[in-house]
Amino acid sequence: AQASVVANQLIPINTRLTLVMMRSEVVTPVGIPAEDIPALVSMQVNRAVPLGTTLMPDMVKGYA
Rank of each mutant, 00 (worst) to 15 (best):
A1L: 15
A1Q: 15
A1P: 12
A1H: 10
A1R: 08
A1V: 13
Q2F: 08
Q2I: 12
Q2G: 12
Q2H: 13
Q2S: 13
Q2E: 08
A3Y: 11
A3N: 09
A3E: 08
A3V: 09
A3K: 07
A3M: 13
S4A: 03
S4C: 03
S4H: 01
S4N: 02
S4L: 01
V5D: 00
V5H: 02
V5Y: 01
V5K: 00
V5Q: 01
V5A: 08
V5C: 03
V5M: 02
V5E: 01
V5R: 00
V5I: 14
V5T: 08
V6Q: 03
V6Y: 02
V6T: 05
V6R: 03
V6G: 00
V6A: 03
V6E: 02
V6P: 01
A7P: 01
A7G: 03
A7K: 01
A7L: 03
A7T: 09
A7Y: 01
A7E: 01
A7Q: 01
A7R: 00
A7C: 04
N8L: 05
N8T: 09
N8R: 07
N8E: 07
N8M: 08
Q9R: 13
Q9W: 14
Q9E: 13
Q9T: 13
Q9P: 01
Q9C: 04
Q9A: 14
L10H: 14
L10P: 15
L10Y: 14
L10R: 09
L10Q: 13
L10T: 12
L10M: 12
L10F: 12
I11A: 01
I11T: 02
I11R: 00
I11E: 01
I11P: 00
I11F: 02
I11Q: 01
P12V: 06
P12Y: 06
P12Q: 13
P12G: 07
I13T: 14
I13M: 09
I13A: 15
I13S: 14
I13E: 08
N14T: 05
N14V: 03
N14W: 10
N14P: 01
T15C: 05
T15V: 11
T15F: 07
T15S: 12
T15P: 00
T15M: 12
T15W: 07
T15Q: 07
R16M: 11
R16I: 11
R16C: 04
R16F: 10
L17T: 00
L17N: 00
L17A: 00
L17W: 02
L17D: 01
L17F: 02
L17K: 00
L17E: 01
T18C: 04
T18K: 13
T18G: 05
T18F: 03
T18A: 10
T18E: 10
T18Y: 04
T18W: 03
T18I: 07
L19T: 12
L19M: 13
L19A: 12
L19W: 10
L19H: 11
L19N: 07
L19F: 07
V20T: 10
V20L: 15
V20Y: 08
V20E: 13
V20P: 13
V20F: 08
V20R: 13
V20C: 05
M21D: 06
M21G: 03
M21Q: 04
M21C: 03
M22L: 12
M22A: 00
M22C: 03
M22D: 01
M22F: 06
M22P: 00
M22V: 11
R23T: 08
R23N: 08
R23K: 15
R23M: 06
R23E: 04
S24D: 08
S24K: 12
S24P: 12
S24W: 06
S24E: 13
S24I: 10
S24T: 14
S24C: 04
E25I: 05
E25G: 11
E25M: 10
E25T: 08
E25S: 08
E25P: 00
E25A: 13
V26W: 15
V26A: 12
V26P: 08
V26K: 10
V26Y: 08
V27H: 04
V27Y: 02
V27P: 01
V27I: 08
V27S: 07
V27R: 15
T28D: 12
T28P: 02
T28W: 11
T28I: 15
T28S: 11
T28F: 13
T28C: 05
P29T: 05
P29K: 06
P29S: 03
P29A: 04
P29V: 08
P29L: 05
P29I: 05
V30T: 11
V30G: 09
V30A: 15
V30F: 11
G31V: 02
G31S: 02
G31Q: 02
G31R: 02
G31I: 03
G31F: 02
I32G: 02
I32S: 00
I32C: 04
P33C: 03
P33S: 08
P33L: 14
P33T: 09
P33Q: 06
P33I: 06
A34E: 10
A34R: 06
A34H: 07
A34M: 09
A34G: 14
A34T: 11
E35Y: 15
E35F: 14
E35W: 09
E35G: 15
E35D: 14
E35K: 15
E35A: 14
E35P: 08
E35L: 12
E35T: 15
E35N: 13
D36M: 08
D36S: 15
D36T: 12
D36H: 12
I37E: 03
I37G: 04
I37K: 08
I37M: 14
I37N: 00
I37V: 09
P38K: 13
P38V: 08
P38Y: 14
A39S: 07
A39M: 14
A39W: 07
A39V: 11
A39C: 04
A39I: 14
A39L: 15
L40M: 05
L40P: 00
L40E: 01
L40H: 00
L40R: 00
V41M: 05
V41W: 04
V41A: 05
V41E: 14
V41P: 02
V41S: 04
S42R: 08
S42V: 03
S42G: 11
S42M: 09
S42L: 08
M43Y: 12
M43L: 15
M43Q: 06
M43P: 00
M43S: 08
Q44F: 12
Q44C: 04
Q44N: 07
Q44G: 09
Q44D: 05
Q44S: 15
Q44P: 07
V45K: 00
V45E: 01
V45L: 07
V45G: 02
V45H: 00
V45P: 02
V45M: 07
V45I: 07
V45Q: 00
V45T: 09
N46F: 07
N46I: 14
N46H: 08
N46T: 15
N46L: 11
N46A: 07
N46R: 10
R47M: 08
R47W: 06
R47H: 13
R47T: 11
A48V: 12
A48P: 08
A48D: 15
A48E: 15
A48W: 09
A48L: 08
V49W: 02
V49F: 03
V49D: 02
V49L: 10
V49C: 04
V49N: 01
V49Y: 01
P50V: 11
P50A: 11
P50S: 12
P50M: 14
P50K: 09
P50R: 12
P50C: 04
P50H: 08
P50Y: 09
P50F: 07
L51I: 13
L51E: 15
L51Q: 14
L51K: 13
L51R: 14
L51D: 14
G52L: 04
G52Y: 05
G52D: 09
G52M: 05
T53V: 10
T53Y: 10
T53R: 07
T53L: 08
T53S: 13
T54I: 10
T54S: 04
T54K: 04
T54Q: 03
T54G: 02
T54Y: 02
T54R: 04
L55M: 10
L55Q: 01
L55H: 01
L55C: 02
L55Y: 01
L55R: 00
L55E: 00
L55T: 00
L55P: 00
L55S: 00
M56H: 13
M56I: 09
M56W: 06
M56S: 08
M56Q: 15
P57Y: 08
P57W: 06
P57K: 09
P57H: 14
P57D: 06
P57M: 06
D58A: 13
D58G: 10
D58W: 12
D58F: 10
M59C: 03
M59F: 12
M59A: 09
M59I: 05
M59E: 03
V60T: 02
V60W: 01
V60R: 01
K61E: 15
K61M: 14
K61P: 14
K61G: 11
K61R: 13
K61N: 15
G62V: 06
G62D: 15
G62F: 10
G62K: 08
G62W: 08
G62C: 04
G62A: 08
G62R: 06
G62I: 05
G62Y: 08
G62Q: 06
Y63H: 08
Y63V: 04
Y63S: 04
Y63K: 03
A64C: 05
A64K: 03
